[in-house]
Simulated scan of single mutants.
Amino acid sequence: MESATSAVCDFINKVPFYVKASVGAVVAGITIIVVHRKLKTKKRDVPRDTIILHQPWYGPYQMVPFALKVETYLRIMKIPYKLDVSDEKGPKGKYPWIEYNDQVIPDSSFIIKFLNKTFNVDLDKGLNPEQLAVAHGFRKMLEENTYWAIIMNRWYFESTAFKKVGLPWILSPLIPYFKRGLLKTTYNHGIGRHSHDEINEIMKEDLNAVSKFLGKKRFLLGDEPCQADCAVFGQL
């Protein structure tokens, strides 16, 4: 028994430190997730006809722009809602998603369409067809292009997001694995094939376009906010 124990100890001592740290981080991460899910409230004390907005909790920062976009829309339209930050992803495997009574709706764009129909509201009701087209173009640019440039800067090149969300130091060995997955995703998207300088140039051009169009107006298309303003606010 002693020889077996000694052999195990010798083996562990020969394992490189970074491997030990990585294994420890994985174990710690799994433990945190398990405990978090055990503590998650199964039954929510939420009145009927109240929106439950699901989004991850990142402390004082909301790092999911699409979740911030939906919450901004809910606040502007004064629709009753409750936040659920139990880290439970929606049916499409992402955030945000909402529950309303017995209905589940994922994806920020479909959520807003649902809110408009269910609560008989529409932040774009005062826009003419030309303005609607412009708003749609800006929203798509921000969510399908600018978003990925910002993600690459926050999470890949500069890694500022990890500090802002308060990532425990014990999980820091997992960052390279996360970055590897992010690079694969953005490479498939297309923007990950560019250099850091090229991605920054793409981001600057998008933001300059928004800035020049906004000018001295209060909101993107005038004195009143529209859905595209929620998207702009969410991204920035």
Rank of each mutant, 00 (worst) to 15 (best):
Y58K: 00
G29V: 03
E198S: 12
M63H: 03
Q55K: 11
F110S: 11
N101T: 04
A21V: 03
W148Y: 15
K43M: 08
Y81N: 04
I202N: 07
G126I: 05
P65W: 04
A133S: 14
P91R: 07
D107A: 04
K163I: 10
M1F: 11
T5H: 11
D206E: 13
Y100Q: 01
G137Y: 03
Q103S: 14
Y81T: 05
D206N: 14
A135V: 03
I32C: 05
K164N: 12
K40Y: 06
A135G: 04
S159Q: 15
H136V: 01
Y147F: 15
F17Q: 14
E2W: 09
P65T: 10
F17R: 14
K204M: 11
V46S: 02
V232R: 04
V15F: 04
G59N: 08
S86Y: 05
M152Y: 10
L220T: 01
L74Q: 02
W169C: 11
F11H: 09
Y18T: 08
C226G: 12
C230E: 07
G24W: 08
P225L: 05
R218E: 15
H36Q: 13
L182H: 09
Y73V: 01
E143N: 10
M1P: 01
K163T: 14
H136D: 13
I202L: 12
P16G: 03
W57D: 15
K94Q: 12
K82W: 02
L220N: 01
V210K: 03
I111G: 00
K179D: 07
N116Y: 01
P168Q: 10
W97D: 00
Q131T: 06
M141P: 01
P60Q: 04
I191K: 02
